[in-house]
Amino acid sequence: MSKVALITGAGRRFGYELANDLLDQGYTVYAHYNSSKQGVEQLEQRGAIGLQADFSDIAAIDDMIATVKEQAQHIDLLVNNASCFFNNSDVDDDADKLQAVYAVHAIAPYKLITGLQDVLSTANDGLVINITDIYSDRPSTDYIAYCGAKAALANMTLAFAKSLAPNIRVNAIQPGPILFLPEHDSDHRKQVLAETPLTVEGGLQPMIDTVKFFRDNPFLTGESIKVDGGRALKI
């Protein structure tokens, strides 16, 4: 029986590369996306199953959960990776963006973990990995809502780890400067790397390796690992 993974935000960056890695390992991969299907179309060509859902709509989350449960008798790995990133002025000027920040980072993971609990338990060692942020416990004053939502996800990681043991393990990864965005100019990149003790952009492979570390060590639950080159030490 092949292993099954559900990755939210699978169309780009870390979600996309993790999905490809799991497909290489023989997993059946459910690849969630919101609006752009570009990366997921490529994953579907490799055998992944694309799932569209706007996480700002609770009914859409419930529909996606129902679809997965109709098709998958078990899930071995759930990665709550979907994200949206808005600064203070964005959420102050647009209530929909404020709602989206908390829906994507807190409500959707809560609904997915609770809604898929029975099929995660069927895997005997079901694993949930929540992608939080180094700012979840060292918040930025420029992204207060985002940091608050990620902090909520970090706290849920601990609570679910306690409540779902021993059948389901729940852990978190706190990424730092893994992969700069195209809009990050050279000055921004230099500043971030100057605040990072290892002084390099991490790339996506360290994140993928950390997923495998959690998967392959069955005695870890309620843990959070910073994959940030040490940047949390300086912010």
Rank of each mutant, 00 (worst) to 15 (best):
S121V: 09
G26I: 07
T28H: 11
G39D: 02
V200M: 13
N155V: 02
P218W: 01
D24K: 09
N34S: 12
D187S: 15
D142M: 09
A232M: 06
T199M: 14
A154Q: 13
A151G: 12
L204D: 00
P218I: 00
N87A: 07
P109I: 04
V101G: 01
P166W: 05
V192S: 04
L116K: 08
H188A: 12
A53F: 03
A152F: 06
F86C: 13
A100E: 09
E41T: 14
L204V: 08
I134M: 08
Q71H: 11
S89L: 11
I225G: 05
G26V: 05
V192E: 13
G115D: 00
Q52S: 11
A108M: 10
Q42K: 15
T210E: 11
K234T: 15
Q25R: 13
D185F: 07
Q45R: 10
Q174W: 07
N34H: 14
P175A: 04
Y110P: 02
H74T: 15
Q25M: 10
L78E: 01
P175D: 05
A66W: 01
D209E: 13
N171Q: 08
P177N: 06
A10S: 09
H74E: 14
D62A: 06
I113A: 04
D137P: 01
C147Y: 01
N80E: 02
I178V: 14
I225A: 03
S140T: 11
K150H: 10
E183H: 04
N171V: 02
A66C: 07
T199K: 15
I131E: 01
D187I: 12
A152H: 08
P206V: 00
